[in-house]
């Protein structure tokens, strides 16, 4: 049972508390995943350590050529952030689709990462931006690429009884870059996705210089379709190229057959469709910004 719920005022105090309770204390942010799991009896920790008073975890700010998003930023804040909408619109789009308004007012990007669910929209979007995570513990601070943060469904490499995810960082959008998030679900709210993808593209003179395609839930963690990314290098998004990209994506993804989320075969086909849509939207943004640069 829970014996205490503490509200440290600094990151140092937070880490001290985790250390003091030696694995029996656990961090809580919005609690929209954690509280449900607690009530299901999934855990045996005794103390909750709340990040609520850690103001620095609630910021979104520019850091030189990068954007830093604190782990305590809610999905609602991500959705409305001008900085995120301008630089990484796929992230605000993904955030806007999580759960429903009440969930988005509480759920945080940090919690989304540490919960490590394969269908996590926030995580999926971050995969398209080569995001790094900043984690602080008793051993000090470390930075890891987001793809190294997971070891299985619901299993994060970040231990919330010993370390604090401080925030995430990704590059600011340069001209010629664009992104988009696509999501298919049974309802428009309060539903995990049947399939979703986050797309990033960098265009140059009408062709794709670089792209990233992250899809989920098709595996334990978001899946980057590296073969499609390779294929698209130097190509223009003609009908033929989109068709071929779709084929590659369908071949590469292996979603399981799910009673709740749709058949494996259906989702394999769906993957091609949503990647196509995402590429076109992301490329439109990229081309517009490229044109602005050329004009000026």
């Amino acid at each position: 049972m829970i014996k205490d719920h503490l509200f440290p005022r600094t990151v140092e105090e937070t880490i001290s508390l985790l250390e003091k309770y030696a694995g029996k204390a656990r961090l809580i942010a919005g609690g929209t995943d954690l509280i449900i799991e607690m009530r299901e009896g999934k855990y045996d920790f005794e103390v909750l350590v709340d990040i609520e008073k850690l103001d620095q975890l609630g910021v979104i700010r520019e850091e030189g050529e990068a954007i830093f998003v604190g782990s305590g930023v809610t999905f609602a804040e991500l959705e409305e952030s001008e900085l995120i909408n301008k630089n990484a619109v796929a992230i605000s789009q993904a955030a806007s689709l999580v759960g429903g308004p009440q969930i988005r007012n509480r759920g945080t990007i940090g919690g989304n990462i540490v919960s490590a669910q394969p269908a996590a929209d926030g995580v999926l979007a971050l995969f398209a931006f080569e995001t790094t995570l900043e984690i602080t513990g008793t051993e000090g601070t470390r930075k890891i690429p987001i793809k190294e943060a997971f070891q299985g469904i619901g299993k994060s490499r970040i231990d919330p009884t010993r370390e604090l995810l401080v925030g995430v960082q990704f590059a600011k959008r340069k001209s010629g870059e664009g992104s988009n998030y696509q999501r298919i679900a049974i309802r428009r709210a309060l539903q995990l996705p049947i399939l979703a993808c986050a797309i990033f593209v960098k265009t140059r003179n009408e062709s794709i210089e670089e792209s990233r395609t992250a899809i989920g839930p098709v595996a334990e963690v978001p899946f980057r379709v590296m073969r499609a990314e390779e294929y698209l290098k130097g190509k223009s998004l003609t009908e033929g190229v989109l068709q071929k990209t779709g084929e590659i994506v369908s071949e590469e993804v292996n979603p399981r057959h799910s009673k709740l989320r749709g058949g494996g075969f259906y989702r394999k086909q769906l993957a091609a469709v949503i990647v196509r849509r995402g590429l076109l939207e992301a490329a439109a943004i990229a081309r517009r910004s490229e044109a602005c640069r050329r004009v000026s």
Partner: peptide, 13 residues
């Protein structure tokens, strides 16, 4: 002033 699900807020929060 912000709408939240009270079933997912701890009393201490």
């Amino acid at each position: 002033g912000i709408a939240v699900n009270s079933c997912l807020v701890m009393a201490y929060q």
